[in-house]
């Protein structure tokens, strides 16, 4: 263990303690496992995409405008989250908190649109149990939505700690890790956008 009073200023705050370094490596291991988790859901969805059991198909359901707005919201939130971490590295607590609040609002906007989308499908009779296609669709997109919901709660708790304690090696590490998680949500969405929505419009 490095002496906690030793400050290696050549490194960002979150990397300065051995503990911080290990936990950042840990989140990368977690994200690797998450990639595989989502891969199984993608594999299920793509295998069952055509099994509509006479019910609505992806072409009947998906609205270009809706999923494009969802995509832009999440892409932009990933960008503002990156800016927040950049502000943190400049030592600006205010900059971090502001950009992270913007990130959360964009994430919340995304979530509201997605819940709305799901509610519309269910009201049109296209619920979870209608067909194998819809079961796989809700499992995949719903798991991503659950991750966004968890992410919003997690980021809020970290924001509170940063607000109360300022940046220490511990809070900076937490802020950095939640940032990585948030970017990862956007990465998964890019593949949902491509494999579910775009492909769903043409096949």
């Amino acid at each position: 263990m490095a002496n906690p009073s030793q400050v290696d200023t050549s490194k960002p705050l979150e990397y300065q303690s051995e503990d911080g370094k290990l936990k950042i490596l840990g989140i990368w291991a977690f994200l690797g496992a998450e990639i595989v988790l989502f891969a199984t859901l993608f594999a299920t969805y793509l295998s069952l995409h055509g099994q509509t059991a006479g019910g609505p198909t992806s072409q009947d359901l998906f609205e270009v405008k809706e999923f494009m707005i969802e995509t832009i919201l999440l892409l932009t939130s990933s960008f503002t989250c990156g800016l927040a971490v950049m502000e943190m590295r400049k030592g600006s607590k205010k900059g971090y908190l502001c950009w992270m609040l913007v990130t959360l609002l964009l994430g919340l906007g995304f979530l509201v649109m997605e819940i709305n989308e799901f509610a519309t499908y269910v009201s049109e009779g296209a619920g979870l149990s209608r067909s194998a296609f819809l079961s796989a669709f809700f499992a995949l997109v719903g798991t991503h939505g659950a991750h966004v919901t968890l992410g919003i709660g997690w980021v809020l708790l970290v924001l509170y700690q940063v607000y109360k304690q300022g940046f220490t090696p511990v809070t900076a590490r937490k802020a950095f890790i939640t940032g990585l998680y948030w970017h990862f949500l956007d990465v998964v969405w890019i593949f949902i956008f491509t494999a579910v929505y775009l492909l769903g419009m043409v096949s």
């Binding site: 370094k21 490596l25 990368w28 690797g32 990639i35 595989v36 989502f38 891969a39 993608f42 594999a43």
Partner: peptide, 22 residues
């Protein structure tokens, strides 16, 4: 970070398993 190569190999391996699965 000091463990950047572990991170890179970990993510690349995750992607490999993902591509094979899908």
């Amino acid at each position: 970070g000091d463990s950047k190569w572990i991170q890179v190999v970990n993510i690349v391996y995750g992607l490999f398993v993902a591509i094979v699965t899908v």
